Amino acid sequence: KQDIENSFFVFLYFCRDLNPDFSVFYNGPKCGASAPDHLHFQAGTKYFMPIDLEYEQLKKKFGEELIKIKSLHVFAIDDGLRKMISFEGNSTPEIEEAFQIFYSSFKKITGQDEEPMMNIIGSYQNKKWRVIIFLRKKHRPDAFFEEDQEKRILLSPAAVDIGGVCITPREKDFETITKEKLKEIFTEVFFDESFFLRFKKKLQSDLELYYYS
């Protein structure tokens, strides 16, 4: 099954093995995985998702560095719609450690018994990993289940959609969806600013406790 807690190291190696021409992505079992009953990662040509190009600008404009230790940098980014935690570094063990701390913190604050909802986009270039984790509150927006066919929108955001390439299986939705509706959908499936502020503080505290105690 999809289980990033016990397979994150494989994700990192997959990014490295496909460098520098591909971005690798992971969809959690409850937020976009096409087959949640078995473990799988997917990859696409680097830069086909706008996030690959926008990340540095988003980090500079909206990001906050939570910790810097050895080669590892951990950032929290809120661009007004998407809530992200990112890891950058050149050491597999350092990024793995930080991810496990993140996973534990996220699971505790959301009160989940199973894997908390997240989508991940990673890459490896110039001997350095970059992993972006999108924190999800909800799998699908209400519009997906709308009884009125004219109002229903079959968009179930996963990593690629969140990365900036929204895929709609119906031509009708592709032709009629608006920027405002996309903002509404993203707002609905991501945590709000208040939660993200609380989580940032918790994650930073947990990281500092681990590395500095």
Rank of each mutant, 00 (worst) to 15 (best):
D3P: 09
F9N: 11
V10A: 04
C15Y: 03
C15V: 07
R16L: 09
L18Y: 06
N19H: 14
P20S: 15
F22M: 08
F22L: 11
S23K: 03
F25T: 07
F25R: 08
Y26W: 08
N27V: 06
A35L: 10
D37K: 13
L39I: 09
H40V: 03
H40F: 05
H40S: 12
F41H: 04
A43H: 09
G44K: 07
G44W: 07
T45Q: 12
Y47P: 02
F48G: 01
F48W: 14
M49S: 10
M49E: 02
P50S: 15
I51P: 02
L53D: 15
L53A: 11
E54C: 06
E56V: 09
L58W: 00
K59E: 00
K59N: 02
K60C: 02
L66D: 05
K68M: 07
L72N: 00
H73S: 06
H73R: 04
F75G: 01
F75T: 05
F75R: 07
A76W: 01
G80N: 01
K83D: 00
M84S: 06
F87G: 01
G89V: 00
N90W: 04
N90L: 03
S91E: 07
S91R: 00
S91T: 07
E96F: 07
E96H: 07
E97Y: 03
F99D: 03
F99S: 02
F102R: 02
F102M: 00
F102A: 02
Y103L: 03
Y103A: 07
Y103Q: 00
S104G: 09
S104M: 03
S105C: 09
S105N: 08
I109H: 09
E115D: 12
E115P: 10
P116T: 08
I120N: 01
I120T: 02
I121F: 11
I121P: 08
N126T: 13
K127N: 15
V131G: 05
I133P: 08
K137Y: 09
K137P: 00
H139S: 14
P141I: 14
P141T: 13
A143K: 13
F144H: 12
F145L: 14
E147I: 13
L155H: 05
P157V: 05
P157M: 05
A159I: 09
I167F: 14
R170C: 10
K179P: 05
E180I: 07
K181D: 06
K183V: 06
I185V: 14
F186D: 03
E188C: 12
F191G: 05
D192G: 15
E193I: 08
F196D: 00
F199L: 03
Q204F: 04
E208A: 07
L209R: 11
Y210A: 04
Y211W: 10
S213E: 15
